[in-house]
Design a protein around this nucleic acid. Structure first.
Lengths: 135, 135
DNA sequence: CATCTACCGTTGTATTTACAACTGTAAGGA
DNA sequence: TCCTTACAGTTGTAAATACAACGGTAGATG
């Protein structure tokens, strides 16, 4: 059963990848979850929290707390949206600069992870998430 | 960058899979992490915590806390090992019965997840983790 | 034999994540 | 218009996870 269980395996790989990235990021005072969000915001442009959460398959409550950190660090800016209830998030120049600063690390991590996980897996992973995003 | 980042994608799929399984397990009073460990113990037989942790890419501290739950539920038994420092973990008959009880759910979840993630991804995932385990 | 090191598991603290409940705001129907 | 419902984000609580530090035990080395 352990031999075939998707959950066992996905969660194991998740721990592996997360630990690897945290190791890389530790000297830079950032966590993987934050960098992931910055990447997403850089790619999506100004975006509503609920839309970002849906895109990342994150709970709105989780996002809300992650954002408090990024706002405090000045990597993300929050403005009022079309409603009094909605907000618009934008990555700041400092956020973009931070992403650029860790770019070499990121590239290295990608290379190492691809080596460890195999190109077949990495490419299948890309396709799968593309499909999820395409809905 | 978000388009290629392995961490973004693995972590996203992890959230998806974990949420799916937690939904299934909720009526049964179990969590995915616990079921994963039970599966592993059923497959490995009596095992030392440190060996189990290495196999699952889990920190020994994390495992220690997860075990407290499983021991409390009576699904796992802990005995003294060859040393005064080492222990031996064994899944109990109740633990095996619990695994068998959720088997139909598990099969259903496997099918649904395979459909959502694609057979290419699931098969690549299997191979990748097999390689990691083969060391 | 004594000490030093390495190993094994637990505990303190923090992060990521989720679900449920709550607050406040908009929209729609009676 | 008023009430109900739906939406957007926050907060309370809890679980999984990790790192660092600790306590106890075994083995190695002088």
């Amino acid at each position: 059963m352990a031999r075939e269980c998707i959950a066992v395996r996905v969660r194991l790989v998740n721990r592996l990848v997360t630990a690897h990235c945290e190791d890389k990021l530790r000297p830079h005072g950032l966590h993987v979850a934050q960098v992931n969000l910055l990447c997403a915001m850089a790619a999506m442009g100004p975006v509503q929290p609920s839309v970002l959460a849906e895109r990342m398959f994150l709970e709105k409550s989780t996002l809300s707390r992650d954002l408090q950190v990024l706002l405090g660090q000045g990597y993300v800016q929050r403005d009022g949206g079309k409603d009094a209830r909605s907000q618009i998030l934008t990555i700041t120049p400092q956020g973009i600069a931070k992403l650029e600063a860790i770019m070499p690390l990121w590239t290295e991590a990608q290379r190492e992870l691809t080596k460890q996980l195999g190109t077949t897996f990495v490419s299948a992973l890309s396709d799968t998430v593309d499909d999820l995003w395409a809905k």
